[in-house]
Every structure is written in structure tokens, then in C-alpha cells.
Design a protein around this nucleic acid. Structure first.
Lengths: 271, 271
DNA sequence: CCTTTGATAAATCATACAAATAAAATCAAG
DNA sequence: CTTGATTTTATTTGTATGATTTATCAAAGG
């Protein structure tokens, strides 16, 4: 713990933010250690101190409480407020710098970068948005994005998937088929296998730029998108069409079926 | 500088890597400070020590010298090899962890994550690939990726661009037109304005998920893709068609013209 | 087979010093 | 006295280092 005298004047923004999310009076270290276990299970994101702090700062940025272009409080001030060492804080800042949220220079301080430069395609960043945006709008934007990516990915997969990948896709589809024919839909299992289905397609494109979308899709499904049982049922046929097109290597058909699939679905929102 | 005695046995992989890229004998700190100025101008990436180290480690991973799933040498060993403090090394590792390249746990060490989880859509990561991949293949993959993203982005921009964004696009197109009608094509200026043209389109989609592609495209153009003068000429008409479609809000036409543009181009490779 | 214990590597803390630079203070020329 | 250039100073991030804590594997012991 730092021993310098407390400066009374500091960013009112972050203070209000802190009191909102953590409570500014109790030293965060104690509070954190107290909560560590209960939080661990929720998202697995609080294992390390710097990650916890990074998340808090990121959410302050994403929510707009720390305005774009503004200078956040200096390292010393933040260390006090979070009750952590400079090492931990700096690692948190480095993490956010890497994602395009912050940028720091000597004497100037650490600045919140313009939204234009935020790396929205980072799964961790997407996770951190939970509860900060209008989920409905967010999911619709994501859908508008999937409509660009997935049809092309399916077309490429139909063309480039290796034998092993086709086998894997086949076995996943098999499980999908079993789940679908069961008397009652096991939603948990369906979500899991649905994610796997789409992941394999991205990995089968033979194009490195499509790889990250497997994780992005997974994050979105696990944090923002919910299923209804009817939907799972109706979706199966569409998945079958995509599957068949990829397996026979018909890229045009794969693109078409995927496009139709994405036109028909309407993401259900969590909670 | 660490004062512990040098352990003779360490990862031969990283050693060979080091001797290859930096030279293992001279302390890196000195060497780095010597090179700092000359490097600064090249990419601006060497300003800080941890960033420099992060880049080196990242390139060792991207090139495959540090195998996926393998454990990299411990902090102490790496500190010695790079001649830096643990602080700097840890910040470098945090940076790479944030990009999905590394993951570290107590007692285990720091592991290279599977390629599946690498964040290929991070501009910095793309920058670091310079010289490590077959550029031709890399650019073709990128083209296969643009073919998915850009037509949709153009369609969305036609639909959602604000008045200010349309004005901005218009002014950029104006400059494009001037450059095109000049007796001799100013390639530098054309690249610059071409990048701006596409950036504005991404920013005009009204969809946050498209925002990162502005920077990705910029990075690719600046580091991997070269222009020939004839190409700039033939491209102008295609840009005009896209521009007009967006300005009149015809999303279908915007999608089509963009698609045609991407079908016709054949990325020229740098050098 | 299960539990305990020890060794090890990362995680965090605390402190010191270096480097960069914005802003203030100083100096020089008109 | 004013103005512009220059130097100095103060502040903030950057780097280094050693101590301490925590998590986890692995081996010893019940």
C-alpha cells in the first residue's frame, strides 16, 4: 500500500464510477480478496488482480463514464483508488492499451482512445460489455455482422475443409441430429453443439482471418444470445442444408443456405 | 539488470531465435538504445522497451519458433536473455496475453496458446507478421476476407450513413477524382485517399463490429499491399460506382458494385 | 489411494531511479 | 516594455530490483 498523503482533488468521474461499482471507502484489495471466491465462478475473469482492474476500467470506458479523448487519473491516484500497487495497475493499463482502449505517454498521462480504434472484435472486450449496452441493439448489430461473415465462411469451408475437418463437422452434425430427434430439446446441449458447428466452419475456411470469429461467436452466444426451444427445432433443417452443402463442396449452395439461415433467425436476448 | 548467476541450460529454441534476430551476446538494452532513433521512424513501435520485447516474442510465436502449446522460458530466464527487468517483461507478456498469444499460470509457466485463439484481427498483430508469412498467400487470404466484409459494409453505409459522413465521403471522393484526372498519378496520395475512402465506409455502417476494419485495412495497405499506377486508374470508376450507390442510399447496388470491385482487383505485393 | 508437504513459478507489492515533456521561468533581442 | 526563443523545473510515465504472497505440481508419507 502506498504511503503518500492522499490528494483530495481527483477525477470526479472515476470517483463516482468507483463508488458506483466497487464502493470507494473500503480498500479494494480487502474487498476483492473477500469477493474473489464468489466471483471466480461467475465469469472466471477475476482470477488475477490486474485483470479485475482492467475490467473495471474498461467498463468505465465502454459505458462512457470515462470520456473518449479524456485523460484518466494518474497512476498514483488510480493505485490509491483501487488499493493496488503500480505494477498491477500498469499491467492492467497495458492490457487495455493492447485492445486499443488506452494510450499513455510520459508527462501527458494515459488517454482514452477514440472509439474508432477500439478493438471490438476482441472476445474479452465483448464480454466486458455485458450490461452496458442495449442488448437488443447490440445483438442486432452482431446479426448484421454475421450476415457478412458467415455466408462467405461457409462457402470457403465447402471449398477448403480438410478431410479431418469434414469428419469433425460430420460428427458434430450427428450429435445435433440426435439432440433434435429427442422428445424434449436439451437447450444447454444444443447451444453447445451449435457453437461447435459454427466454430468448425470458421476453422475450415483455410483463411486465418476467419479464425477469431469462432471465439467471438462463442462469447456472444454465451453472454448475450438466448435460445427458445422452438427456435432450436426450426433451425435444425437450416443447419442440415448448410452441412450438406459444405460436405459435397458446393460453395455457392453453402453461401446461399447460410444466408437464408441468417435471414430467418431473430436472436433472442438473454434475460 | 539481474545479478543472478547465468543458468547454462535454457530453451534452445528461443536462444537460436534470439541470436537470429537480435544477437545474443551484446546486452539488448544497449543495443536497443543504440537503434532506438533509427527504428523510431520506421513503425513507431519501438518507443517503449516492453513493446519492443513484445514484438520480438510475438514474432517468435508467429513464425513458429516458439511452438503452439509449448512453455516459454521462465520470466527470470527471459529477463536475462533480453537484458531487461521483470517489470518490462511482464508488461510485454500481458500485452501478448491480451492478444491471445500467451497465457500464464503460477507454477506452470507461460504457455503459447493454440493458433485458434490468436486475435488475427488485431492491427498490431498483423503488423508483426511482416516478413514472416508468404505475403502473396497472406494478401490473398485478406482479399478473401474483404470479399465478405466490404460488400455488406457498403450496403449498410448506403443505408445508415449520417449527413456528416456522406459529406465527408463526398469530399474524399472529390480528392480522389482530382488525383485521377491529374496527368501523372501520385501513388502516395492515392493510397492515402483510397484508405480514407474505405475507412469512412466502415465508420458509416452504424455497426460497431465493422469499426475495427478501418484500422485493419489501413495496416494491410501500409505494410503489405502495393499499387501500380495502371491499377489506380482502372480502380477509379469502380470507386465512383460504389460512391454513387452509397450517396443515393441504394444498398443493393452498393453491395453489388463493391463485390465487383473486389472481384476485379488483384492485390499487388510489396517489394 | 488420499493427504500432506515442499519446491517452484508466477502474482503482487514497495521503492528507487531514469526518461520524456508540458509548463513555467528565464533570457535575449527588438 | 514586449515578444519570442531558450532553459529550467516539475510531473508523469517508464524501467529496475528485491521482498513477499499465492497457486499449483510433484513427491513423500500415511
Amino acid at each position: 500500500m502506498l504511503k503518500i498523503s492522499v490528494k483530495v482533488q481527483f477525477s470526479s468521474i472515476l470517483v463516482s464510477y468507483l463508488s458506483c461499482y466497487i464502493g470507494a471507502i473500503i480498500p479494494i484489495t480487502a474487498l476483492y480478496k473477500q469477493m474473489a471466491n464468489s466471483f471466480n465462478s461467475i465469469s472466471g475473469a477475476k482470477r488475477s488482480l490486474h485483470l479485475h482492474v482492467a475490467r473495471e476500467i474498461a467498463r468505465a470506458i465502454l459505458s462512457g463514464e470515462l470520456a473518449q479523448g479524456s485523460i484518466i487519473p494518474s497512476e498514483m491516484v488510480l493505485c490509491e483508488q483501487f488499493g493496488i500497487s503500480r505494477t498491477a495497475l500498469r499491467e492492467a493499463v497495458k492490457l487495455l492499451t493492447s485492445k486499443g482502449l488506452l494510450q499513455s505517454r510520459p508527462k501527458i498521462g494515459t488517454r482514452v482512445v477514440e472509439k474508432i480504434n477500439w478493438n471490438f472484435l476482441d472476445p474479452q472486450l465483448i464480454e466486458w460489455m455485458e450490461g452496458l449496452t442495449d442488448i437488443n441493439d447490440f445483438c442486432n448489430q452482431f446479426l448484421g455482422f454475421r450476415r457478412a461473415i458467415e455466408p462467405e465462411a461457409c462457402a470457403l469451408a465447402a471449398q477448403n475443409a480438410t478431410v479431418e475437418q469434414r469428419k469433425e463437422l460430420s460428427s458434430v452434425f450427428q450429435k445435433m441430429s440426435e439432440l433434435n430427434s429427442a422428445p424434449e430439446l436439451d437447450i444447454e446441449a444444443w447451444i453447445d453443439i451449435d457453437i461447435q458447428f459454427h466454430r468448425i466452419i470458421f476453422f475450415s475456411t483455410g483463411n486465418d482471418f476467419y479464425l477469431p470469429f469462432g471465439n467471438i461467436l462463442t462469447t456472444m452466444f454465451e453472454h448475450f444470445i438466448a435460445y427458445s426451444s422452438e427456435e432450436g427445432g426450426t433451425c435444425f433443417n437450416e443447419h442440415r442444408l448448410i452441412y450438406e452443402a459444405i460436405m459435397i463442396g458446393d460453395s455457392t449452395k453453402a453461401r446461399e443456405t447460410s444466408r437464408e439461415h441468417l435471414q430467418s433467425i431473430n436472436h433472442r436476448i438473454k434475460e
